[in-house]
Design a protein around this nucleic acid. Structure first.
Lengths: 228, 228
DNA sequence: TTACGATTGAATCGTTCGTTTGACTTTTGT
DNA sequence: ACAAAAGTCAAACGAACGATTCAATCGTAA
């Protein structure tokens, strides 16, 4: 079993940076080990020497940002839950915990902003295609955790209906990441991810909440005290 | 310029059927011309003889279902508009015109149901990646047409906000097509596309009309000042 | 300095890719 | 019947792929 520690400096990091950039730009299948090594003027053999194989490098590239991202997602969710123990969270809080880490993690990145979002989008979109088993298990736990929170926030909506809506929401998130450039097109300059996610949270919350009786929704309370 | 007529029978159709099936299963980049020809026990040269190139075959595979699909989308939208001229359509009607043709077109295909949906999802997901210029132009016109209808149905929502929401909705649709198998998982057997799209229409309609003052079903409390 | 493990480099491995060729067979039109 | 057109076939093309080899080079501890 090959170790799975993500390098923070040195030639492995140089290679990974190049790989992540190219994967984000062209997609995982469209990038060869020669593309990566030539991009940083290293030898072809470097990839196999440092990562064992192309797949090893791919796995690290996928893990590098997604593991911290999903950790922050869980941390934000549980932090919000600790604030009002026992009470269900506001829908917007849950969704915010799911999407905001995308912005905060981007700030810690060596990748250009647009490429970071594209890379995440590609990883999310490929989920279920067997790109990286370890990450897919990580994501399965994550979505289970968020589904539990959603079930508590919307107890009157059947759980499998909620699962469908969470699925639709995830698709929207993936699409805005992979095709972000289409979003600012009419306005000339691209929207900030901050603005996009603000719109997305409201869109997704409305979709998830659909069908709730008006007064039941008002009396629900959480969003009445909603504030961040 | 090579003609772009989609064959209805003969060896070209046999090859295209195989290509469509394999594209749906494995993705466009993961299928070689040898995969296609061996699948139906024809010679490797057949693809280049009949389609000029792999890309020619790919273009036809993309056009084959998407052109009739988008035609039906427009037809349904305009048929609904003709029923009550001048009046804006119900949101659900617009979305229905956008998604229902996916079901009706599936009935006309020679492809297994699940593969048809996967193929469409892959095509939609690749939109903007330059897979087929002709189709991308076709889709641009389609989304312009639907955005016009949405603008009339929701005149109080800023147009570019509406464009964002349409973008999110499209992502949800793509994701449910490409990863439909995840949707029936908890129930054991996969949901019918009919049931999925029913849920999707309600989800998307709620998301699109979010924040509408006239909408009594969802309250607007502190979110009115909610600003990301 | 010497010795040694870590790293790099150029060359090459075997495969697969899309495409082309030219001979062969089948179908079609007259 | 026969020539032209259309289609099929095995074989091969050059290019690119991931991976491997092995000698050269490096940094460092003895």
């Amino acid at each position: 079993m090959r170790e799975l520690t993500i390098p923070e400096s040195g030639p492995k990091r140089v290679l990974l940076n190049a790989a992540e950039q190219l994967f984000a730009k062209k997609g995982f299948e469209a990038v060869s080990v020669r593309d990566v090594t030539q991009f940083v003027k290293m030898n072809v053999a470097a990839v196999n020497y440092h990562f064992g194989s192309r797949e090893g490098m791919l796995t690290l590239a996928i893990m590098h940002y997604t593991l911290p991202l999903n950790e922050e997602r869980i941390a934000r969710l549980e932090s919000a839950e600790r604030k009002t123990p026992g009470k269900p969270l506001a829908l917007e809080e849950i969704i915010d915990a799911f999407v905001r880490p995308i912005i905060t993690q981007n700030r810690k990145t060596e990748l250009p902003e647009a490429l970071f979002y594209q890379l995440l989008g590609r990883i999310f979109a490929a989920n279920g295609d067997g790109l990286s088993q370890a990450y897919e298990e990580n994501f399965r736990q994550l979505s289970d955790r968020f589904m539990r929170a959603l079930g508590k926030a919307l107890p009157t909506i059947p759980f499998d209906e909620l699962a469908s809506r969470f699925h639709f929401m995830s698709g929207g998130l993936i699409h805005l990441l992979t095709h972000r450039e289409l979003l600012g097109k009419r306005a000339g300059s691209p929207m900030t991810m901050e603005a996009i996610l603000g719109r997305f949270i409201r869109f997704a919350a409305a979709g998830l909440r659909e069908g709730l009786a008006a007064d039941a929704s008002v009396k629900k309370g959480p969003q009445a005290t909603f504030d961040f």
